Amino acid sequence: MANRVLDHAFALAFRGLVYAQIWEDPDVDMKALQIRPDSRIIAIASGGCNVLSYLTADPEAITAVDLNTAHIALNKLKLASAQHLPDHAHFRRFFAEADSAANIAAYRTHVLPHLDETTRRYWERRDLSGRRRINGFTSNIYKRGLLGNFIGVAHLLARLYKIDLASILAARDLDEQRRVFEREMAPVFDKRFVRWLTDQPASLFGLGIPPAQFEALAGNEPMAEVLRRRLEKLACDFPVEDNYFAWQAFGRGYGRGDRSPLPPYLQGTNWQTVRDRANRVDVRHANLTEHLTAQPEASLDRYVLLDAQDWMTDDQLGALWTQITRTARPGARVLFRTAAEPSLLPGRLDDALLARWRYDDALSAECTAQDRSSIYGGVHLYELV
């Protein structure tokens, strides 16, 4: 009964905007996927950062699917903005800084006329606070949504313990980052209240972790220990000047200035490429398995599942991989992440179906280590035999 209540609460929480920024590293994705000019990609859309970033690898086409209407609207807003804002300065101000009143004028002049009616209604309507949703881009959209609110609560909790999480962003090298982490952040996970709080499944809804995934993530450990290790990787394993995930976690937005780290789709060197190729992306409000069922055999070759399988039953996994296998072209690759470290497919997917795919142990381990977002236990790559 308790699990059903938690599942229902999580489903309700996921109806609105969850991720203004996706939390999978697109550089790792593109390394694993080995996108080619004839690649036909299908991906769960989420916040759209990775879908747009894949355009820099020059695929033939990308289909972005999602059941969350807010994510669909955000993807379509990003694509229309890439195609119709006057220049990179406007695009960067809108999605990197995301806190200027001038963004609204640019939206109304250049972007709004090119949005479909459903997307237009979404951004023009008011949220629970009474503000038009598009006004999120005048007050830092990255502080909004389920994840943005979760990070805000984490910063509030840190301040109660007299810790400034943003201090790590001034560190000059990895050694200094580690010193800041060990001095300021690590001790928080020993606090009795923090350990109690993080052991409550509902406390991690803001990270997009449903009850089933919470159990997989925790394993047999206190959740505080798991979170400490993930935060340590984020804080210590990658230079903050190259890790925009660290800026989002510790600074609640992207950094300022031309040298601030940004996702590939927002970088100035990729502006014209993303602009020219944005029409290759088709955004669909759909269930991934159902969408694949309607596609021809051997019509796709790159699949990006994010961490959605962590939420699935064995029957749902079987249905998804049946359609992936049917629609896969020779050399097809499937990329996904899991809360726990190992791949979840062995023992849950039919042996004959799984035998059609080769698991790349070495590349999966390498990509797991290099994923700068640091919140997942495993990054997994399968290739069609």
Rank of each mutant, 00 (worst) to 15 (best):
94 F>L: 06
95 F>S: 02
95 F>I: 01
96 A>L: 08
97 E>Y: 12
97 E>I: 09
102 A>T: 09
103 N>A: 05
103 N>E: 08
104 I>R: 07
106 A>V: 04
110 H>F: 15
111 V>R: 03
113 P>T: 12
114 H>A: 03
115 L>C: 09
116 D>F: 07
116 D>T: 04
116 D>K: 08
117 E>G: 03
118 T>S: 14
120 R>E: 12
120 R>P: 06
122 Y>N: 05
125 R>N: 11
127 D>T: 04
129 S>A: 13
129 S>M: 09
135 N>W: 09
140 N>F: 07
140 N>T: 10
141 I>P: 00
144 R>C: 04
146 L>S: 14
146 L>V: 09
147 L>D: 01
149 N>K: 12
150 F>Q: 10
153 V>I: 14
156 L>P: 00
157 L>W: 03
159 R>N: 01
160 L>H: 06
160 L>S: 05
162 K>Q: 11
163 I>Y: 05
164 D>L: 03
164 D>V: 06
164 D>K: 14
165 L>I: 07
165 L>N: 04
165 L>F: 09
166 A>H: 13
168 I>K: 03
171 A>D: 03
175 D>S: 12
179 R>K: 13
181 F>P: 03
181 F>A: 05
183 R>D: 12
185 M>I: 15
187 P>A: 10
188 V>F: 14
191 K>P: 00
192 R>G: 02
193 F>I: 11
193 F>H: 02
198 T>H: 08
199 D>H: 10
200 Q>A: 11
203 S>R: 02
